[in-house]
Amino acid sequence: MNIVVLLAIAAGLIALRFLKPNSLAWSSATWVAVYVFLRYGVVPPVPASVLTMFMFIITLSLAVYLTTTEDRLKEVSNAFVSFFTDKKYTIPLVVALIGLPFIVAFRVYQNLTQLPDPPVVGRTIHPPPPATITFKGRQVDLVDEDNPYRELETSDPTAFAEHVSNGRLVYYQNCVKCHGDNMVGDGLFARGFNPIPANFQDPTTIAMLQESYLFWRIAKGAPGLPVESTPWSSAMPAWETFLSEEDIWDVILFMYDFTDQRPRAKEVHE
């Protein structure tokens, strides 16, 4: 939800109160307020199809509101009648009568010139990993195996720091071009890709994954993605051809170290 828009709407409505508008103006203002809120106030934006339906319901209930009591109905109909008959409204009336067909025509034009959309393909961003993968002929158990150098963090901090600095080297030699200097996925090449490279600073990426999952993704890259994640729509190379097993584990250590995050703990099977 966008707080700024919300506050602006509230301020607008409160300001309108002081003008003491009639029911019609008040209802129109409510309509616009709801529209602005749904269109700009909600993040991510409400899809157009749903927005249309919501606005239809709002329109209906405002129509109900305006016609429930005789007084209010009269207020509305008088406003319309005076708009059509009063001398002082001649210019707005002419503008409206000429403008409305143009607006409709413009909408038709817009609809007709719209480029066709490709169908939406649902893509699983974090597909479930296989139980085992083959890394350079060795069977790697993704369920039970863990980063072999993670334990050094407590048992041998100096050795751990070495691994991390090796990871730094690996990262800046290979990964930085896409994933960027600060690991937010804005490297030099990032703009050319869809989907864009992962942002490791985002708490919903590496922080919620296990290290073995990262190992799988780095080693196998886009070609190793399962069907539900539509292989080839990601540009991630399969690094197993370029990096050693140790390099990969090291760069994983560095990624967590740099972003100040912890890998997701292994689930304990009872």
Binding site: P44, P45, P47, A48, S49, V50, D117, I125
Partner: peptide
Amino acid sequence: LVATVEEARQMG
């Protein structure tokens, strides 16, 4: 929801 590609991308 029925959403266009652009909308779906924004919703993730």
